[in-house]
Design a protein around this nucleic acid. Structure first.
Length: 244
RNA sequence: GACAAGCACA
């Protein structure tokens, strides 16, 4: 139990060697690892993009007599989408379903995100249809994913209407909701619109993050509006955000 | 049920 927390900490800090050493230490003491420990280990390996190790952990989980649950499959789907192997992720999705485990918002988000990374908008939206068909109500993250997709397609208007839609359903946009939009306008050289969205964002009570500022500054720089970019940079420092 | 596996970046 205590081990679990420490291992979790190491995984988050990318110290996978340390985490692994602890697991071994635990086994030597005759303490059985719990499922969450396997999950955090899989996650850790996913973060450092070590597919093989992650799969080994998965295999060990099964060897220890655990039955994969939705989180386990989620970890696998996450792994494959992060590696850009969406077809593999879909296979996992099928196995999961045939084992009687339904998709939830997170597994769907991961799949959509995988397709978005490949710029496969058609399939991304196909998954979104499945979500609706399942009668699930999209959550904030899923909305953010959809917005990212619209921005990637260059369909900025749909992106904005989606934001309005989610507000209607009483979902508070997060700073990540607006980032792809600001970024999209920035890339298109529409600095004015980017700033408009930025204001809209603050109006809805979102606190801009470093990434938000980065997106905005990038746009201004591309438009050769260096003075404005520098001004924003100052605002950012005043807001107590450290540039990266 | 709530935590917990899903959304940043040239």
């Amino acid at each position: 139990i205590i081990y679990g927390n420490i291992i979790y900490g190491h995984c988050q800090a990318f110290n996978m060697e340390r985490a692994e050493a602890l697991v071994r230490e635990m086994e030597e003491e005759g303490i059985d690892a719990t499922m969450d420990i396997y999950h955090t280990m899989m996650d850790g390996y996913t973060m450092i993009k070590n597919e093989d190790k992650c799969l080994i952990v998965y295999k060990r989980l099964k060897e220890c007599g655990f039955t994969p649950n939705e989180v386990t499959y989620g970890c696998l789907i996450n792994l494959y989408t992060k590696m850009g192997k969406v077809s593999k992720a879909l296979e996992v999705s099928e196995t999961m379903k045939s084992n009687g485990i339904k998709h939830n918002m997170k597994t769907y988000s991961m799949l959509i995100n995988g397709f978005i990374k490949l710029k496969d908008w058609a399939n991304a939206f196909a998954i979104f249809e499945d979500v609706i068909k399942d009668g699930l109500k999209p959550d904030v993250v899923l909305y953010n994913n959809i917005i990212t997709a619209f921005c990637g397609m260059g369909n900025m208007d749909r992106a904005i209407t989606t934001v309005l839609e989610m507000q209607k359903v009483r979902h508070k946009p997060t700073s990540r909701t607006f980032m792809p939009i600001i970024h999209g306008y920035a890339r298109a050289g529409e600095a004015k619109k980017a700033i408009q969205v930025f204001d809209m964002m603050r109006m809805s009570g979102c606190i801009p993050t470093v990434h938000t500022y980065n997106a905005l500054i990038l746009g201004l720089v591309e438009k050769r509006q260096m003075e404005r970019a520098v001004k924003i940079l100052d605002e950012m420092l005043v807001a107590g955000i450290t540039p990266n």
